[in-house]
Amino acid sequence: MFQVIWIVIVGAVLGYLAKFLLSGKQSIPAWLTVLCGMLGALIGNFLATMIGVNDTRGIDWIRHILQIGCAVVAVAAGSAAWPRIRSRD
């Protein structure tokens, strides 16, 4: 159960950090920001594993940079898709 809470917390931090790093206003709801952050963490971890930098001695800087980069891409995609999704309602 604690792992699920930790995943949500990391997703929130990455999602809001990605919104901060993107220029302009991202008009997406909080739940979508957290979901995009979680997706960024998942894809960033996958990429770090694929290139062999997922578990290193010390702080895994490359993995964290990949997670942030993937979260930025996910938030940008979510921000672009949200008006179209919302207009369907």
Rank of each mutant, 00 (worst) to 15 (best):
I65W: 11
W82N: 01
D55G: 04
I65F: 13
V8H: 04
I5V: 12
G15K: 03
D55I: 08
A74Q: 04
M1N: 09
G11S: 03
I43N: 02
G78N: 05
R57W: 12
R88W: 15
P83R: 05
K19C: 08
V72I: 13
L22Y: 09
I43E: 06
I28Y: 06
F46D: 12
I62S: 03
R88F: 13
S27P: 09
W61L: 05
L21A: 07
G69E: 03
I85R: 06
G58Q: 00
L42V: 11
I7G: 12
H64W: 14
L32C: 05
L14M: 11
I51K: 05
V53T: 01
L17H: 07
G37P: 00
I68N: 00
N45E: 11
I9G: 05
F2G: 08
S27G: 12
L32I: 06
M50P: 14
W82A: 00
L22M: 06
A30F: 11
S27Q: 14
R88K: 13
N54M: 15
N54A: 15
L39Y: 09
V4R: 14
S87L: 07
A71W: 03
L22E: 07
A30G: 07
A76F: 15
V10R: 08
I9P: 02
S23Y: 15
K25M: 05
V10Q: 08
G58L: 02
G52V: 04
I51M: 10
S27V: 08
A77E: 14
I85G: 03
I62H: 04
P29Y: 01
W31E: 09
G15I: 02
I65P: 01
I5P: 03
N45Y: 09
Y16C: 01
R88H: 12
R88L: 13
L35W: 10
V8P: 00
L17E: 09
I5H: 10
F2S: 10
I65M: 10
S23A: 12
S79H: 13
Q26D: 05
G69S: 03
Q3G: 06
V13H: 03
A74N: 02
I68W: 05
F46Y: 12
V73M: 07
S23F: 15
P29N: 01
G15P: 00
L17N: 07
V72Q: 02
A48G: 06
W82Q: 01
V4M: 14
R84H: 15
I7N: 14
N54C: 14
T33S: 12
I68R: 00
G11L: 01
K19H: 11
F46R: 09
L32Q: 11
I7C: 12
V4Y: 15
S23L: 11
W61D: 07
G78C: 03
V10L: 10
I85T: 03
G15Y: 05
A76E: 14
W82T: 00
G52T: 02
V13F: 09
A30W: 13
T56M: 13
S87H: 12
R86A: 07
F2K: 14
Q67N: 05
S27T: 08
T49A: 15
